[in-house]
């Protein structure tokens, strides 16, 4: 469905006045995507994971025909994004987080009607698509309200509705939960999975810097860093390989030697040990971080409690992008199956 073969892209670096006055013909350029090769299959929920500046948005904008690649070949459903850009635009929809790209002084329906027209839809067909898109994103009741009065979550859903109007085969979601609060983000993810992926059967590419979001939602995930594809593969395989679970255990500082002894007995080696920190009553506390799977963690907590340790907290440490990148780089990257 989406195929990238050796995609390269560099952007010219903005020159200073001094360099400009020298009138040199040579320009510095900043590589943004370097020899990226990957395939996304039809109906797949594909995650593109990487920190800011990894090249995720550039890759998406290339697929959406907004950016011309410097080298390599990019095709969408067999169509070249440079030579057959207009046809590609009928297949692809890019959803960003820029709420300003909506017309705030018009209603949601009016916004969608405009884009339906731009996609060549007219009359009853356009009206039906607009109504359907609003229904899909659960904004049917607010279609006649001015967009300026919408919450961020509603605007985000309206951006999705706008993208769905021409029934694209590929949805490019560029950090869609970035401006949402955790509860709205969770609801939005459920919506992506249940409505867009499962019901509408869209091929979805999701760019995110949240590993848990990518590994949780997507069938396959690619890790992009500084324009290079470090790893890609099924989300569960990547999770098993790099998503080592860790737990944070808190005990009173005086019980730290006992905790360490207990962990040693179980063969658990703490990865981090924090310095003593006082709680609200002034009691000094210690925290250690231990690697453990879900099953092992249950037996560890049981053993610790049986050992009469005063365990103050035992909680899972979320997987951070920095951790994941570090592990991928350390592991030399996963075989690129994409």
């Amino acid at each position: 469905m989406v195929s990238l073969r050796g995609l390269d892209k560099s952007f010219p670096v903005r020159t200073g006045w001094r360099q400009l006055l020298r009138l040199t013909a040579a320009h510095d350029s900043l590589p943004v995507l370097c020899n990226v090769t990957l395939d996304v299959r039809a109906g797949e929920f594909f995650g593109l994971l990487g920190p800011n500046g990894a090249g995720k948005s550039t890759l998406f904008r290339t697929l959406a025909t907004l950016i011309l690649p410097d080298g390599g070949e990019v095709t969408v459903d067999g169509l070249d994004v440079v030579r057959e850009a207009e046809r590609v635009r009928r297949l692809v929809a890019l959803v960003g987080t820029d709420e300003r790209s909506l017309f705030w002084r018009a209603t949601a329906t009016e916004n969608l009607e405009l884009y339906a027209t731009l996609h060549g839809l007219r009359g009853a067909t356009a009206r039906a698509r607009v109504a359907g898109a609003l229904e899909t994103v659960e904004l049917a009741d607010t279609g006649n309200r001015m967009v300026g009065q919408f919450s961020s979550g509603m605007k985000q859903r309206l951006l999705i509705a706008r993208a769905l109007l021409h029934r694209p085969r590929i949805l490019l979601l560029d950090e869609p939960t970035r401006s949402l609060d955790p509860i709205s983000a969770r609801r939005f993810r459920t919506f992506l999975r249940a409505e867009l992926a499962q019901r509408q059967r869209c091929t979805i590419l999701l760019a995110t810097h949240n590993p848990e979001e990518a590994l949780d939602l997507c069938d396959r995930v690619a890790v992009l860093h500084l324009g290079r594809l470090l790893a890609s593969g099924p989300a569960d395989e990547l999770m098993a390989r790099y998503g080592e679970q860790r737990y944070r255990v808190g005990v009173p500082w005086t019980q730290l030697p006992t905790l360490q002894r207990a962990l040693r007995t179980m063969g658990v080696v703490p990865t981090e040990l924090t310095s003593p920190s006082p709680d609200r009553t002034g009691r000094q506390l210690a925290e250690v971080i231990i690697p453990a799977g879900e099953a092992a963690s249950t037996s560890i907590i049981r053993t610790l409690l049986d050992g009469e340790l005063d365990v103050l907290w035992f909680e899972r440490v979320g997987l951070t992008l920095a951790d994941l990148l570090e592990r991928v780089v350390r592991g030399g990257g996963a075989p690129n199956d994409a």
Binding site: S101, F103, L118, R162
Partner: peptide, 22 residues
């Protein structure tokens, strides 16, 4: 360019003369 509407319009299959007219 400032609001981002130009990009969203450029993502549609509308031709350049029609875009200018619009």
């Amino acid at each position: 360019i400032g609001t981002g509407t130009l990009e969203t319009q450029l993502c549609t299959p509308i031709g350049l003369p029609a875009l200018v007219a619009g």
